[in-house]
């Protein structure tokens, strides 16, 4: 009973803070994330390390599983955030991660597991489902206070940022070696800042959903015979 109450309280306080100090929280950033070809990147993560350290508050995030997919596909959380893995499907899932940032395993379950998983180490955590190989989800754990995930157009909108200088980090599941890339510093004024970031990408290694079995040698022989034929 106490915990929902606390959540409500925290939200209210935050809103009050925003209202009472408009000058202090005036900056906003509208960023566009593209790959080296200029194509907008979906699911890219942008984090900002600002002049003021935001206090880390214990927050619980959600990584849902809908239609045998992780929703959202990319979830960004601050270190120390607990993430709940509710299962919206009517089948069971077996969510696991062998990523060094967080190793865990939620054995076959249905509905919401009893306890959320605490992500306390920054880094990319790749989520998989042991019984649905194609299910891949990412939990990006960062120490930066401000972050956002790009939408389908590759856009990121961050509002109510303190005016100041920020170190920008970018991440994407297909970033090289799945490491965040520093994107320099950004000075945000009171006006809305528009910025375009380019992220180097690695070839996709996403596992494809199962297909019909391939008869590799059959092809090889047919080829060999074709070659042999005069």
């Amino acid at each position: 009973m106490t915990r929902p109450f606390l959540y409500l309280l925290r939200a209210g306080l935050l809103g009050l803070l925003c209202l009472i100090s408009p000058a202090l929280w005036a900056a906003s950033l509208q960023a566009e994330l593209v790959d080296t070809q200029g194509q907008p990147l979906t699911g890219a993560v942008l984090t900002l390390q600002g002049p003021l350290g935001a206090e880390a508050e214990p927050v619980t995030a959600l990584m849902d599983q809908q239609a045998k997919q992780f929703v959202p596909n990319v979830l960004v959380v601050r270190s120390g955030t607990k993430v709940a893995f509710p299962n919206s499907d009517n089948i069971r899932h077996h969510v696991y991660s062998f990523s060094p940032a967080k190793r865990f395993e939620l054995r076959l379950y249905q509905g919401t597991p009893s306890a959320p998983v605490l992500f306390d180490t920054p880094g990319a955590v790749v989520l998989g489902c042991n019984i649905h190989d194609w299910m891949v989800g990412y939990v990006y754990v960062t120490d930066d206070p401000w972050f956002a995930v790009s939408d389908a157009q590759g856009r990121v909108q961050l509002d109510s940022l303190p005016v100041g200088s920020y170190a920008v980090s970018l991440w994407h599941p297909q970033a090289p070696d799945m490491l965040p890339q520093a994107a320099g510093t950004l000075v945000l004024g009171e006006l809305q800042t528009r910025q375009r970031f380019t992220l180097a990408m690695q070839a996709s290694t996403v596992v494809a959903p199962p297909q019909g079995p391939a008869s590799a040698f059959g092809d090889a022989f047919k080829k060999a015979k074709r070659d042999a034929a005069p």
Binding site: Y96, V126, G128, C129, D133, W134, M135, V136, T205, V207
Partner: peptide, 16 residues
């Protein structure tokens, strides 16, 4: 010797 070789990637869930 002659070997018949197959290879598979270990995905967890990404290739490791």
């Amino acid at each position: 010797s002659i070997y018949l070789l197959v290879q598979a990637t270990v995905n967890a869930p990404l290739p490791i």
